[in-house]
């Protein structure tokens, strides 16, 4: 299964994703998402699931069913937009609380024994070279933490360019 996490408007996403294969799970902004409250309930109260109830509490489980994750986000200060970041902040139940040392750095251990593929499309007018570099290092760091075996990052001048991308048609 592919999972697409995106911050496009309903109108944009309706036209862009019309031809999607049925086994794709779309995570869209319904305007109701709550932000993570830092309680760690997803690790120590309801392991694997966020305790907030707003239809975004199952991100850990959704990622466990994914082969590939596609992120479409406006680029904000060298990172994701608030909605996309909110979804990722709500996704840490995909991992275990326990630590592990990888390449001499601490990271979390896996709850699900699997690797992911990740494609990230950052869009925005005049994304500077500096901003793009930071965004790339962010995706790289996320890939280590979320056990992504292969990732790629692209920068688009506008979300219009998404129509040319095969993997989201």
């Amino acid at each position: 299964m592919n999972v697409i996490i995106h911050d496009l408007s309903t109108k944009e996403s309706e036209t862009l994703f019309t031809g999607l294969k049925s086994e794709t799970k779309l995570i869209s902004n319904n305007g109701q998402i709550k932000n993570c409250i830092g309680c760690f309930g997803c690790w120590i109260k309801t392991p694997g699931k966020c305790i907030l109830k707003d239809n975004y509490e199952k991100m850990g489980e959704i990622l466990s069913l994914a082969d590939k994750v596609i992120i479409i986000s406006r680029c904000c200060y060298g990172g994701y937009s608030p909605f996309v970041k909110n979804v990722l902040d709500r996704s840490i139940s995909y991992l275990l609380p326990y630590f592990k040392i990888k390449q001499n750095e601490t990271h979390h251990r896996q709850r699900y024994k699997k690797d992911l593929l990740l494609s990230v499309y950052f869009y925005g007018k005049n994304i500077s070279k500096k901003e793009a570099e930071i965004a790339e290092s962010l995706v790289k760091a996320n890939s280590i933490n979320f056990y992504v075996s292969k990732y790629n990052v692209s920068f688009l001048d506008s979300s219009e360019e998404l129509y040319n991308i095969a993997e989201i048609q």
């Binding site: 993570c36 200060y77 990172g79 608030p82 909110n86 990722l88 902040d89 996704s91 996320n142």
Partner: peptide
């Protein structure tokens, strides 16, 4: 949060 600034 997740290697960057928290969404809120």
């Amino acid at each position: 949060y997740v290697d960057s600034i928290p969404s809120h």
